[in-house]
């Protein structure tokens, strides 16, 4: 058997990629459609929904909330994930598998359970709902992702570099700042960007914990009920899809900066 060609399989793969991509394409297509009916045949090209989007002050409030939550949670998650990844890649220690599992759990259990758990504890302690509990939830949810990305990146890290720095008289912190940090920077940025995207798109935790502060997905969810407000959500959706795709491609590229060719595939564990 030569594994050079398999027409049937190739055609199937193309169809599957169609299944994967075509549904998402309908959002941008309909966002340029005239009128409020989301159905074929298209009524004609118009940018009215984008103007509508531009003139929605509540949308921008929600956008800033989302950016704030995303930046804070992803920064914290990247930091926690970095320390954890360091522990897992540098040391062999007792309880290694258990700790690894524990840190992954928030991502593995059904999200709604994490959401109501945070809601219950927050309400019973008597704290006001809002962006703070959402951030805590997002840090829990993003840390596993960032950690997997960083572990893949740090597996080949040469520990001699750190030891050399220590031998030459630098302390733990300066060694990190002047040796490890610059080397790992592309991976750290990639982890931060992907964590940000996860937080930015996250809906369920935000819905349970929102209080009166809306994030962007909550805003969109609220608008879906009104047929009239729907088209500008499509316009917003199209913008989000393009923006996140660009950020993700940047993150993917950064993940491989300075990686030897044969390791590049392995960094794709998630």
């Amino acid at each position: 058997m030569k594994l050079n060609e398999n027409r049937t399989l190739y055609i199937y793969v193309l169809i599957y990629f169609g299944f994967l991509y075509i549904p998402v394409m309908f959002l941008p297509i309909f966002s340029f459609n005239q009128g409020i009916h989301m159905a074929f045949p298209l009524q004609g090209f118009s940018t009215e929904h984008y103007e509508d989007m531009w003139n929605s002050p509540k949308l921008f409030d929600a956008l800033w909330n989302s950016i704030y939550v995303g930046v804070v949670s992803s920064l914290m998650a990247t930091m926690l994930a970095f320390f954890a990844a360091k522990a897992f890649t540098k040391y062999k220690f007792r309880g290694q598998a258990l700790s690894y599992g524990a840190i992954l759990t928030p991502f593995l259990i059904p999200e709604i359970i994490l959401a109501i758990a945070l809601l219950v504890i927050w309400v019973s302690v008597g704290l006001p709902l809002g962006l703070t509990p959402i951030i805590i939830g997002h840090v829990l949810f993003c840390t596993p992702f960032c950690m997997i990305i960083l572990i893949a990146r740090m597996e080949g890290f040469d520990n001699n570099l750190e030891e050399a720095s220590r031998d030459l008289g630098e302390g733990v912190f300066m060694t990190f700042w002047r040796v490890s940090f610059p080397i790992l920077l592309p991976g750290l940025i990639a982890a931060f960007l992907l964590g940000f995207i996860i937080s930015f798109d996250e809906f369920l935790l935000a819905m349970f914990l929102q209080g009166s502060d809306q994030t962007l997905p909550i805003y969109m969810w609220g608008q879906l009920r009104f047929a009239r407000r729907l088209p500008h959500v499509l316009a917003l959706g199209a913008v989000i899809i393009v923006a996140t795709s660009l950020v993700v491609m940047l993150a993917y590229w950064l993940r491989n900066v300075g990686q030897p060719q044969e390791k590049q595939d392995l960094t794709f564990k998630i």
Partner: peptide
């Protein structure tokens, strides 16, 4: 990586 909410909405 594109918004889960939007993908469901597309369907």
């Amino acid at each position: 990586w594109t918004s889960y909410l939007l993908r469901v909405f597309a369907w």
